[in-house]
Every structure is written in structure tokens, then in C-alpha cells.
Nucleic acid binder design. Structure first.
Lengths: 136, 136
DNA sequence: ATATTACATGCGAATATTTCGCATGTAATA
DNA sequence: TATTACATGCGAAATATTCGCATGTAATAT
């Protein structure tokens, strides 16, 4: 990510580097607010707008994937910024990346049958994770 | 939908009936605002809050499917209120329901491999529809 | 090292979307 | 026709995100 920023001649400010770091090591696909909270641990004066601005930039550079949900509050993935299936726990809200080899490219088929030019896709499953199932 | 409302002893107000009708005949998965605009053609004093409240109710009754997107602004489907794939035109924003027989239940497989109890899913494709492709 | 400058930041205000509180209205039932 | 609990309309609140602008600072040139 840092390489990409450098390549595009964007400045490597401390806040920006920290946001990148948080996104890169994050598990479970954090919200903007969660990124904000972690960044403020190191740089307490950081503003939420800066977090959003940097996420937007990284999104545009293709380094971060944005996941929108009906309940509001987007989630971000800085590890695999390309389309891949997700499985969301409805209780603890964690989002994992399951392996799903059966889901090959239906895309080609779909393009043929609909006439659409398909650019990307989104596949999410919703349910209860093993840990939350055990809890009760 | 009206039967379902009646069965649950909800009142059949003119506004409610009109909202149901708009949702039932709508194509392309309207936004709340679009439903609001159509309902106001017949009942000009209808408030947006009423539209949201009724959509919420129908959602809870399982009669309307809500689709959230990262760009904000949910979309609603009153025709097929169960999980099914969508294909979204990034230009004209229309949403269609493609046939996708290849997408059988990966769900069972996923439950086995992840330990999740899967409750529902969401599969969307994004691209450019034939009409918009022709335009340029 | 220092100066320069264009990009970044922090702050609060603005937007957009959805929900809420509350007074009033009205569909369903008695 | 009266009753009553649910529904509506309105504006305000709650959320999530973006914007405007003054100030700060990383990168580059000197």
C-alpha cells in the first residue's frame, strides 16, 4: 500500500501511515470508526474526516475494498482488496473470508445470458459463527 | 402482501395500501425516495417517515427485501422478497434479477467447511447493461 | 540547512439517509 | 356511533459521511 501511495506521489504523513497499518493488519473487516479509534491510540488528534479521506484514497487506488450493508456503516478490507466471498456473523458482526472453490466464474455465463458487461461482484453469506452458536 | 397485513391485524390505510401497490408493481428495485414520490402522486400529504415505517413493517413480515449498498441509499424489492442474485447497472442504476441456475446451494457446503449456521445470503453483480453499453 | 509550495490535516458545519417523539387522525371493532 | 389502539404527518434527532477553510507539514528545490 505504501508503495502504491509513493508511486502516485501522495505524501506519507504519520496519520496516513498509521491508517494504512491499521487497515493492513486488521481482522474481521473494521468500520471507519474502529479504524479511527485505533489510529487515535497512536495519534490522538487525528480526525475522523482524515480517516475517511484516506480510506477513500486507498479505495480509489484499489488497495482497500469497501463493503456496504443495509444497516448502515461500511466495512473495510485492506488485506484482500479484490472481490471475494464473505461470511458475516449476525451476532458478533465479525466478517470472515471463507474458501469457496465451487464459486468459479459464473460471470462469463452471466454476461452471455444477460448482455451485461460485468465489472465486479459481491457474494456474502449471513449467519451465526461457531463461537456465538456455542454461547447459547 | 395485503393478506399478510390483514392476517397480522395491521390496518389497511390508504397510504399503506398505496405503498404496497407501488412496491408490488415496481421494476428495477426502487429507493425509499422513489416509492415516496410515486405514493405522493396519489396521496400528496404522505410523509417520508410513513414510507419508511411501512417498508420496515413489510420487511419484518418478510414481504419486502432490502438491499443495502456502500454508496448509501437502500433499495427495495417487493416482488421477490427472498434471496436471489441481482445485477446492477453502474450507469443507470437499474437492478435486474438474472437467472443463475448454476448457483445452487453452496450454502450446505459452506456450513460444513466453516461451522457457521447460514441464514441467508446476498449475491450481486455490477456492470453495464446492454442499453447503456449501446449509448456509447 | 532553508525556503517554497502543494497536498494533508483538524475542526466544525453541511449532506444524506433513516428513525424518533408527539400531537392528531382514523380503521377496525364493539 | 363510540371507542381505542394503531397510523400518520411534521419537524427534530440520530447516523454515517463529506465538505469548506484555515493551518500545518512532507517533499522538493535552492
Amino acid at each position: 500500500m505504501i508503495q502504491t501511495l509513493r508511486r502516485h506521489h501522495f505524501r506519507l504523513t504519520p496519520q496516513r501511515l498509521e491508517i494504512v497499518k491499521v487497515l493492513a493488519v486488521s481482522e474481521g473487516h473494521p468500520t471507519a470508526e474502529q479504524v479511527y479509534d485505533k489510529v487515535r491510540k497512536k495519534f490522538p488528534t487525528t480526525s475522523l474526516a482524515t480517516v475517511y479521506r484516506n480510506i477513500l484514497k486507498l479505495k480509489e487506488l484499489g488497495e482497500v475494498l469497501e463493503l456496504g450493508f443495509a444497516e448502515g456503516g461500511n466495512r473495510y478490507d485492506g488485506n484482500k482488496p479484490y472481490d471475494h466471498p464473505h461470511i458475516v456473523c449476525l451476532k458478533c458482526k465479525k466478517i470472515l473470508d471463507p474458501e469457496l472453490p465451487q464459486f468459479q466464474d459464473l460471470t462469463r455465463e452471466l454476461e452471455k445470458s444477460t448482455g451485461f458487461q460485468v465489472i465486479n461482484h459481491r457474494l456474502d453469506f449471513f449467519g451465526i459463527c461457531p463461537k456465538c452458536r456455542a454461547k447459547r
